[in-house]
């Protein structure tokens, strides 16, 4: 995110804490902040969810539209993810078209959903090559206190599970909406797990102050059968191979924990 200055003394304190296995808010290195997910918070949206991950807050709204499929996959619905870093969420967010951070956030969340085939897009075809459903996922950041990727991905999954698609019939090439709804076909449950590297150690779910001092960040998205379905390294530092293997192991475990918050079974 837009860089803000952190005092050297604070940087050093955080680095020292992490090397002792501690964090500013007394969490363990591999503990998430408390997460609360609420679904169905915007009635006009076909699906919605709001997450609070510590003080980070993201609202996800899903709208369903009708449009043309991509020419290389004429029988599949379309998925688009967009992120807005709303200026009211942080003094470092500016109004205007999405910057590289917002674009990265949207694309990493998109990758997890797309690559795990979470939405059964073939089920969203109305007329092959002509008309399909478009699933618009909008990530709306309301309060920024670090780890937007995990919060947004989790809320997006919760919202997808809560999304209704209107019934329709096709008359003379026109789609007419009929009363009633059915659920969006969801086939997989991708969960994003983000690590920050501070003082050569990994921590999960970095809060804002940790993001400001971290060397690098790694997001691993894990699908329901524990396969890795998306990765993204960011930040000015680097990772060692062993750190990535270690992260992969922890990510599987954490993903199973977080998944329970939104997938009730």
């Amino acid at each position: 995110m837009t860089s803000s200055v952190v005092a050297k003394v604070k940087q050093r304190r955080m680095a020292d804490l992490v090397s002792l296995g501690k964090r500013l808010d007394e969490r363990g290195l591999m503990d998430y902040r408390e997460a609360q997910v609420e679904t169905g918070v915007v009635e006009k949206a076909e699906g919605s969810a709001r997450i609070r991950l510590g003080k980070t807050e993201v609202l996800v709204g899903i709208k369903i539209g009708i449009g043309e499929p991509f020419s290389d996959v004429p029988n599949q619905g379309v998925l688009t993810v967009n992120a807005e870093l709303v200026p009211l969420a942080s003094p470092t967010f500016e109004p205007g078209p999405p910057g590289e951070d917002a674009i990265e956030l949207a694309r990493v969340v998109d990758r997890g959903i797309r690559e795990s085939k979470a939405i059964d897009l073939e089920n969203l075809c109305i007329e092959p090559g002509k008309k399909v459903f478009i699933v618009f996922i909008d990530l709306y950041v309301l309060n920024y206190d670090g780890n937007l990727i995990d919060a947004s991905a989790l809320a997006a999954l919760a919202a997808l599970l809560n999304t209704k698609v209107f019934n329709y019939e096709v008359k003379e090439g026109e789609v007419q909406i009929k009363p009633g709804y059915k659920s969006l076909p969801i086939r997989n449950y991708p969960i994003a797990i983000t690590f920050a590297k501070i003082n050569d150690k990994l921590v999960v779910d970095p809060q804002l102050e940790e993001e400001q001092v971290m060397d690098a960040r790694l997001t691993m998205t894990i699908e329901k059968d524990e396969k890795v379905c998306a990765l993204q390294k960011a930040g000015n530092g680097y990772f060692r191979i062993q750190q990535i293997s270690e992260a992969a192991k922890i990510a599987r475990q954490k993903a199973a924990e977080l998944r329970k918050l939104v997938v009730k079974k």
Partner: peptide, 12 residues
């Protein structure tokens, strides 16, 4: 490792 990305599905 200074860049790492992935899309697709891979077991551990």
């Amino acid at each position: 490792i200074t860049l790492l990305q992935m899309d697709g599905m891979l077991t551990g």
